[in-house]
């Protein structure tokens, strides 16, 4: 096959329509690509040179060979005012300062969706716990939930805490008390665990709790669920051979 000289394009019938796609449609498509891949499209033509920089999403995966310098470079080069989604996956390498800086950057730009799986495990910064625009928050392996301090997440509807750490039994009720619009809560628990998980919320409609405890037999915990708006409940024990269910009371009214 020849290289891409473009004057006689075989798909000519479509090409007018496709090459005439408005910039906002192209930017929308680019916003679904990992950010380093969408940045590559700057090589396509003059028109495409800066399109990627308007994508509202920042998506970084460790398997793209991305390091933290590239994250800073992208944050400097991008031209979109706001961030719709910041996603870092695959145990993305970062220091505590980077973690705080990137989250502050996203919160200042009215981030709506935050999906973080980065290296290390840190107390969540105040700016994140008081982000007025956050709708969807997913934290994997990287967060410590504080037991005190202001929490106000007035738009948060979906919360996924995957193998988080908790300062104390009070951490979870404290966090949920600041999520006044929460509808979906996914909680995955592993070893470093508490004596009681208290899930209390007047707004949660969907609740999923997964236990990933290994076979240490000495562990015992209580799960208390007080969610009057609940319509869907899933509880799953991935190592069911231990953790016998000692006591379960389920009241379903109406």
């Amino acid at each position: 096959m020849t290289s891409s000289t473009s004057s006689s394009i075989p798909e000519a019938e479509n090409s007018d329509r496709i090459s005439g796609m408005p910039d906002d449609v192209l930017v929308h498509i680019l916003s679904f690509l990992p950010t380093t891949i969408s940045a590559k499209t700057s090589i396509l033509s003059r028109r495409w040179r800066f399109l990627w920089a308007y994508a509202p999403n920042l998506i970084f995966k460790t398997d793209d060979d991305v390091d933290s310098d590239i994250v800073y470079r992208v944050m400097l080069l991008r031209r979109s005012e706001n961030i719709n989604t910041l996603r870092m996956t695959g145990c993305f390498p970062c220091t505590e300062l980077q973690f705080d800086t990137w989250i502050a950057y996203a919160v200042m730009r009215d981030v709506r969706n935050l999906d973080l799986w980065v290296s290390g495990c840190r107390i969540l910064p105040q700016c994140l716990l008081n982000c007025k625009t956050l709708v969807d928050l997913r934290l994997t392996n990287c967060s410590v939930i504080p037991e005190a301090g202001p929490i106000c997440l007035p738009c948060l509807k979906n919360l996924h805490l995957i193998h988080a750490r908790y300062e104390s039994d009070e951490s979870l009720p404290h966090l949920l008390s600041g999520c006044t619009m929460l509808e979906e809560f996914v909680l995955m628990l592993d070893e470093d665990s508490l004596s009681c998980y208290n899930i209390s919320s007047p707004t949660i409609k969907r609740l999923t709790v997964h236990f990933h405890f290994s076979d240490s037999t000495s562990y015992e915990c209580r799960l208390v669920i007080d969610t009057p708006a609940l319509g869907y409940l899933e509880i799953c024990d991935h190592f069911g051979k231990f953790a016998p269910l000692i006591d379960a009371e389920i009241h379903l009214e109406e």
């Binding site: 473009s6 798909e11 916003s31 990992p34 033509s45 028109r47």
Partner: peptide, 24 residues
């Protein structure tokens, strides 16, 4: 858009230029 992005992700610059009718 997500589907188009998924298709584009693995393609060469030449492929994207052709399919989007982009003149370099």
């Amino acid at each position: 858009s997500a589907k188009i992005a998924q298709v584009m992700e693995k393609k060469s610059v030449g492929w994207v230029r052709r399919k989007f009718g982009i003149e370099n």
